[in-house]
């Protein structure tokens, strides 16, 4: 059984052309395994979001190869026309802001993607309620995002990312807007999800306190990606 869930080889990403050409990633190769929570760190502007969006089939790389699970999705070009189908079936996205759809209530926000994937309303809602229960906001299922607190919305957004039972979760600074305690809660939750659901998670973070909770660290250095061990747990945890 193949453990690797994300595999990137020789990935290159340039923005612009000619004189205004910006090299962001130049020859990144790495893997992330199922059940692994990996932190992605680098200075601001180093290309963390760009890398995540390429793996998430949102931003088109310049060249290289990307495997998601057993499927090679990119080799110097998208190998499918329906990158959006890959996104909604295989990937869960979490961001710094919750980005819930404001005109849908929490339950609808969480069930939108699975229902688009063809899961029945009943089944998707049952699973969504399980997730909301897990995140302690089951009583907010019928509420609109505007009536929830920031933390509640962020948990709802994580529930949404899980609702399609993704193989991969891409989290871009999910804890940046949260206080330390909530941040630790969220990252522990992600680790538990990675283990329980056998999901590969890449989490961009600026918060060094979160690193000991992760399994591994990917750093962007010299436009390439290097893998390092996590530091020892710090005293605050």
């Amino acid at each position: 059984m193949n453990r690797q869930s994300i595999k990137v080889e020789n990935l290159v990403k340039n923005f612009g052309k000619g004189d205004s050409l910006v090299e962001v990633i130049n020859g990144a190769s790495f893997e992330v395994n199922k059940g692994e929570l990996v932190a992605l760190i680098a200075p601001s502007g180093a290309g963390k979001t760009t890398l995540l969006m390429m793996i998430g089939c949102v931003e088109e790389p310049t060249s290289g190869t990307i495997w998601l699970g057993d499927e090679k999705v990119y080799e110097n070009r998208w190998l499918t026309k329906e990158t959006r189908k890959i996104r909604r079936e295989k990937i869960g996205f979490i961001f710094q802001a919750h980005y819930l759809i404001p005109f849908l209530n929490i339950l609808e926000n969480v069930t939108l993607v699975p229902q688009t994937n063809g899961v029945s309303k009943k089944e998707s809602e049952a699973f969504a309620r399980e997730l909301l229960d897990y995140f302690d906001i089951e009583d907010k299922a019928e509420s609109m995002p505007s009536s929830l607190s920031g933390g509640q919305n962020q948990r709802a957004a994580i529930a949404r990312a899980l609702a399609n039972k993704p193989q991969i979760i891409l989290a871009d600074e999910p804890t940046a807007a949260l206080d330390l305690k909530r941040s630790v809660d969220v990252v522990k939750m992600l680790k538990k999800i990675a283990l329980d659901q056998d999901v590969a998670i890449i989490m961009v973070t600026h918060d060094e306190a979160m690193l000991p909770l992760c399994d591994r660290i990917l750093k962007i250095e010299n436009k390439k990606v290097v893998s390092t061990e996590v530091p020892k747990k710090s005293h605050i945890l």
């Binding site: 959006r84 909604r88 079936e89 996205f93 759809i101 005109f103 939108l112 993607v113």
Partner: peptide
């Protein structure tokens, strides 16, 4: 903004 988010999480154009 919402439309971009929907596209990002994989909602098809048709919807």
């Amino acid at each position: 903004k919402e439309i971009a988010i929907m596209k990002l999480i994989g909602i098809p154009n048709s919807m």
